[in-house]
Write a protein that binds this DNA or RNA. Structure first.
Lengths: 355, 355
DNA sequence: ATGAAAGCGCTAACAG
DNA sequence: CTGTTAGCGCTTTCAT
């Protein structure tokens, strides 16, 4: 990667003032009242007379007063910051979830500080510590695959212990008691499988590269159950797990050499799109020979050829719901009421990759 | 959207203590020294004896002391927070950029607070105010298309005035003096166009749905220039702009009814992928009849059929570089040295959608 | 109705 | 080498 420094120009903007923001003290001095009075007036405290309130507010606006949130935070012990830890940000699913989170946060005057675990436990632990130290009011997270694989949840417990609200979404765990929001992974997979069966598929494989996550485990169960619930002459469950060090393309190609299938359910968008590609390159017709359904209704699913049938997880709603849950817990004081587990409904978006 | 509340279970975790974190004062009391001494010892100040440093550090670790960053921020007037404002988060380009940003920030002990403008000026203005009020140390941003369309940069100037470092990336403007990092949009488009010409294309259209952005304008120029620089019998520049209220599919279909082309350069991934799809649906062969090149080397470009030739903008490097610039400016004190404009090299990823 | 004073937790002169 | 003091900017009793 080459980097060129193109131009350079000096602009010694001697920043006039505006730098030193006006404070309560300043305001008080100018108005000839006490700091306390100004503070109360600006906070619309009931024991300040209406006329002084008006006078103070006017001057504050005139001088463009904005309260120093750091000082407020120190005093009030609330930062109005929400911490978010997600495994990655390039998956459409998480990008959309983050969008939902930021939107809801903004509407409630919360800022969001973001951390990406990159699917690694250590990063997740570090992030938790960082967020805890920086005094966020609450934390939203979706677990890394490594965390779920190793089943190490000490850092989550630390969050709970620290008495700051935690809400888990999508990739969650029973090992920790807190609010959660997920889709019904089991049922979504179950329904998708039955959808394929109704379309006449009899040898359905389950493909995934996130096979160590909670969501994938549930999806596998739903898939298996659908197969066995069907009274038809259906093949046994077939799992095609893509290990970290091989690619979906290779794994599928290899698999198809010695197996005959007529449908694939993919646990995430990448596997779905990749399999759609490789299967056709291998000479199979989609959906005539092989049908494909993928989890996550990615932005480009309608543009694949053929357009991909996929499961809309409404991840923005998920992010939004998780944030709502967190904020409401923040607002309702610290009492630990019952924890909620909200299930977001999924939709099967039927397109052209299924019969 | 239906939402079911599934389960609810009460777990009245009476959080022991750990809540009330140990402070310098507490530490001082226990150790029988002054607060100042503890503070200095922990900050490895040179005028504390080695032995007391050791003693104090030991106790601090034992009691799990962590400094209150809010109090530090108030005192030091630095928050170690970086503000990031991007137009959207679902485009692969911005998702990758954000990843680069968070990674670099983390390595330098900065947190990042994220805001998404959703391509709207008002949101951008609000975000700037929010970030400024929350005392971030610096701001990274890529402008919304509306901002660039309206050419309203008051909020950026406000950032500069406030004396907090700003670095613009990708979608930048000359109207404001600050550090910038972009690709060479002009040259990337120029090169891509010549690439097509060399492959024998003679009627190349330029497609975009972000037509009001700075990057798109430059890409158009590069494209046009390449066309006119070529001494061959090449068609005039043809711009297919997709307005907000129609879709790429419709626009292209409509365009092809009355125009004959043999190549498309698309200004962003969405247009590229969508055009690949619609063109083939219309019966054209890619790349035999029409070649397609798209900006942004999205995650799934290699899985389209045919695999999409695209321009890798190395957005993670871009985010990383922008962050480095910002942090170095933060570290080198506030003196306004020369502003830099760093250009990230792009690569044309040749795949199967071009001859 | 208004103000004085304490204090959130920390850093940094300055004094001793 | 260590401690005293002041203060960052704000909120909040408690007096007046």
């Amino acid at each position: 990667m080459l980097i060129f420094v193109q131009t350079a120009f000096n602009k010694s903007l001697k920043c006039t003032t505006l730098e030193d923001k006006v404070t309560l003290k300043e305001l008080a001095r100018i108005l000839g009242v006490s700091i306390a009075t100004v503070s109360k007036a600006l906070n619309d405290n009931y024991d300040i007379s209406e006329e002084t309130k008006v006078r103070i507010r006017a001057k504050a606006k005139e001088l463009n007063y904005v309260p120093n949130v750091i000082a407020q935070s120190l005093k009030l012990k609330r930062t109005f910051n929400l911490g978010v830890i997600i495994p990655n940000i390039t998956d459409y699913f998480f990008a959309r979830a983050l969008r939902g989170i930021t939107k809801e946060a903004k509407e409630n005057k919360f800022k969001v500080v973001i951390s990406i675990s990159n699917e690694e436990l250590q990063n997740e632990v570090d992030s938790v510590n960082l967020l805890l130290n920086s005094r966020v009011d609450g934390i939203l997270m979706s677990l890394s695959s490594e965390t779920q694989l190793l089943e190490q949840y000490g850092h989550l417990k630390k969050v709970i212990q620290s008495d700051i609200p935690l809400v888990l979404f999508d990739r969650v765990t029973d090992a920790v008691k807190c609010d959660k929001v997920t889709i019904d992974d089991y049922k979504s997979a179950y329904d998708a499988t039955f959808f394929l069966i109704r379309k006449g598929c009899r040898n359905i494989a389950f493909l995934s590269s996130i096979y160590k996550t909670s969501v994938c485990a549930l999806r596998k169960k739903g898939y298996s159950q659908a197969l066995s619930d069907s009274k038809l002459n259906i093949g046994k469950p077939v799992f095609v797990d893509v290990q970290a060090d091989d690619t979906v393309e290779e794994r599928i190609a290899e698999f198809l050499e010695s197996n005959k299938i007529d449908a694939i359910i993919a646990a995430e968008e990448h596997s779905a799109v990749a399999s759609l590609h490789v299967v056709q390159n291998l000479g199979y017709k989609v959906p005539q020979d092989i049908s494909v359904i993928g989890f996550t209704n990615g932005a480009f699913n309608k543009y694949t050829i053929p357009a991909l049938t996929s499961i809309n997880q409404h991840s923005d709603t998920m992010g939004k719901t998780a944030t709502k849950l967190l904020i409401s817990r923040l607002k309702n004081g610290k009492e630990k009421s019952d924890f909620e587990h909200v299930i977001i409904q999924t939709d099967l978006m039927e397109r052209k990759s299924t019969k």
